[in-house]
Design a protein around this nucleic acid. Structure first.
Lengths: 203, 203
DNA sequence: AGACATAGCGAGCAGGCGCTCTCTTTTGTT
DNA sequence: AACAAAAGAGAGCGCCTGCTCGCTATGTCT
């Protein structure tokens, strides 16, 4: 039925693996870590159980590959959005970073991080990814005009602090969202980034 | 074998329920949400399966009760630590808050929050608890001397922002800890709370 | 004391899990 | 064209899950 063109083994393999990773990531986003079963992933990917285990020896291996895929996509799309904006103000950067933290895809990352806390194998596989992730973010941030005002020896702490804040905000907003407070907080962060006090003391 | 003293039904019920909640919470902390099975909880509590389902109609009900227990204990222990300290400086308060976020018990809260994202029933049950939790923290913080310098209309945003930051930090430190950065960040937060810029611009 | 309600027990059930194994189909090699 | 290797399929296995149900033990009420 589909135009039966001949594909190399490498191509067949690549498309199947890609479909499986896509499926795993979307399932992590929509159903969470525990409900991302091999059966669910194969169903989404249109691949059989046997097909999955040909490319990933265990569910664990699939989850690790999915984690790396999430990390890669998240960083790429954030970097691209930053590029697209050109020379951005501190506020612009913060808005972008907040969008990235709240992106559905990032929820998959939280799922994996939380699962890794009580799963030693997953922990050991994800730890280097997390380190790399943070490092890439810091390096990206270091090149930004908005970071020019931050002393070099404080930049890493401040930058990752902002990421942590937006991560925590994103997680809790699922249960208890406060849009107004969150906007106010973004303004405070922008002031902080510029080396000003968080609020205007002449109230 | 144990001193067979006569207990009322209410007492029997209360001790069993307490044992089950203890077991559920410790299992959430040590094994995570997915691995906190009814069997695991009954094993830890020394109660039979039938005994559990006499008091909790479903696993879901047990998890909801455990969540409220976690919220209660976390807030109580934090309030007690604050009380114990007397009139605390901003640094003192931040250290205490950071300890609370990193406490093993708080990991159970993260487990439940993340699980609630993809479990509508759990979400609906936990949402009011999360709202209450945040509100209690803000009210507690409002009474602190360390918060005196923060304008009233900015306090909620700042305070919850700090909590989010410490939550995010706590979650990621499982995979990628940076003790030095985290201490530096605490100093920056303390400066921010006092209405100062986050860093000393006379570098 | 006797009747009733509540607490607690644990074997067992239907269903879902990760994974295996055998099989067929497709691609690569000579 | 003949054979080998890799990709994909899907029924099935052993195990674990949340939960039920019939039962005994204990406390409550008249």
């Amino acid at each position: 039925m589909p135009p039966r063109l001949r594909r190399t083994q490498a191509e067949r393999r690549a498309t199947t693996v890609a479909a499986l990773l896509d499926a795993a990531v979307s399932s992590l986003v929509e159903l969470g870590y525990a409900a991302t079963t091999t059966k669910e992933v194969t169903r989404r990917a249109g691949v059989s159980q046997g097909g999955l285990f040909r490319h990933f020896a265990t569910r664990h291996e699939l989850m690790v590959a999915a984690a790396d895929e999430v990390r890669r996509r998240q960083f790429e799309s954030f970097a691209a959005a930053l590029e697209r904006l050109g020379d951005a103000t501190a506020e612009d950067c913060l808005v972008l970073l907040r969008q990235a933290c709240r992106a559905p895809m990032n929820a998959a990352w939280y799922e994996l991080v939380v699962a890794a806390r009580t799963d030693r194998d997953l922990h050991d596989a994800l730890a280097p990814m997390a380190t790399r992730y943070m490092k890439e973010i810091v390096e990206l941030g270091r090149g930004l005009p908005a970071a020019a005002g931050v002393p070099d020896d404080q930049l890493e702490s401040v930058l990752l602090g902002i990421v942590h804040l937006l991560d925590g905000e994103s997680m809790m907003s699922v249960l208890d969202p406060h849009p107004e407070l969150e906007d106010q907080r973004l303004q405070q962060l922008a002031r902080g980034l510029k080396g000003l006090p968080l609020w205007d003391s002449a109230h």
